[in-house]
Design a protein around this nucleic acid. Structure first.
Lengths: 199, 199
DNA sequence: GTCTATAATTCGATAGAC
DNA sequence: GTCTATCGAATTATAGAC
């Protein structure tokens, strides 16, 4: 099992650029695209290598296995904005807007969601992101740890549900929504899940 | 490509029960369980046949192909309650409660969501359910057809997001929610998506 | 109706020449 | 570092005996 924690940011600052870095980046780009479009099983190493215009055996050389390639391709860090610095009533809008920005920035999140939903192993990877990155952020905003978990789960359900219908399932009315409409509709919902008293 | 529209309700009223019907039902049960747990690719005909305690070749004989088996296994009809007969302010709660009931009733919807998210072909099947069953129901409640589509998409995003985090990804805080909590939290959201003026 | 045997592919992974 | 060739395993699907 590959160590996904060793991969952090896509643009590692240290180490002088080796000649193989561009090849490596091309493989990761192609892999993200294929995993996002086809899911884990149907995204074959052969097809990814063809997209990246290299030999399939090179993928194995760089990443060891298909699992290792996937782990490297979907290594994400959800950079959440500092919510405590905002006026209380702007938190919902800000969170939704930030979420949309990062989702449309690249295909990592779509790939992660598609694979995460498609298999048990993928689901555990998404559980890890939620546990290690989303929950701690929620605890920073909400003091009661039990309530923080519930509220984070509700917000995740709403935001991931939008991503699911818009970017994965591609329901036409969900795709047609503008960024402004999404913020206007979902902002108050997220705001309520985060700040309203427990019913 | 199998004709999924020919399969409607799991309990067809016509035709006297043939001797093979129990075998057929056992295969479908096992298939739903495997598809829900493992996704489309990893749910092999061999494993499904083993669960159903029959020979793998029988699956082919009954359903023609793996695609045909899947189509038969996830043939669902979303029976939506008659919302027009309710007091306006109870619509949200009713819809959420109804949704939860049907989702926990069996594994069809989890299988459909897991496979739908995992591949393009599965996504198109979910688009079909949304287009043929959810949208018409939304138009019955909301007169403006364009608004009906938008509101239906927002509600689908919220409800499918809950199913995703609770039944597929299994985020612990989402699993821990009680039925009452879900209705209390999501009811007002759905209510607003359905009845609030367009922002 | 049921099962055995197997065809025909396809994939991940490896070995080794250059 | 790059590529050719290939192994071994697993799958869907078919053909045909009983």
């Amino acid at each position: 099992m590959p160590d996904s924690t060793s991969e952090t940011s896509p643009s590692a600052p240290a180490a002088p650029a080796r000649r193989s870095d561009s090849t490596r980046a091309a493989i990761l780009d192609a892999a993200r695209e294929r995993f996002a479009a086809d899911g884990y099983e149907r995204a074959t190493i052969r097809a990814i290598a063809r997209d990246a215009k290299i030999d399939p055996s090179m993928v194995m050389r760089y990443f060891g296995s298909k699992d290792g390639l996937f782990a490297a391709a979907v290594a994400v860090d959800i950079r959440l904005p500092d919510l405590s610095a905002l006026p209380r009533h702007e938190v919902g809008h800000t969170l939704v807007a930030h979420f949309l920005d990062h989702w449309e920035e690249n295909e990592v999140l779509t790939a992660l969601l598609r694979v995460g939903a498609g298999s048990q192993a993928g689901a555990e990877r998404m559980q890890g992101v939620f546990r290690d990155q989303v929950l701690p952020a929620a605890r920073r905003v909400c003091p009661d740890p039990e309530q923080a978990a519930t509220r984070a789960a509700l917000i995740a359900a709403q935001l991931l549900g939008l991503s699911l219908t818009r970017y994965v399932l591609r329901f036409p009315p969900a795709v047609a929504l503008t960024r402004q409409e999404i913020v206007a509709w979902l902002g108050p919902t997220v705001q309520r899940y985060l700040t309203a008293p427990h019913p």
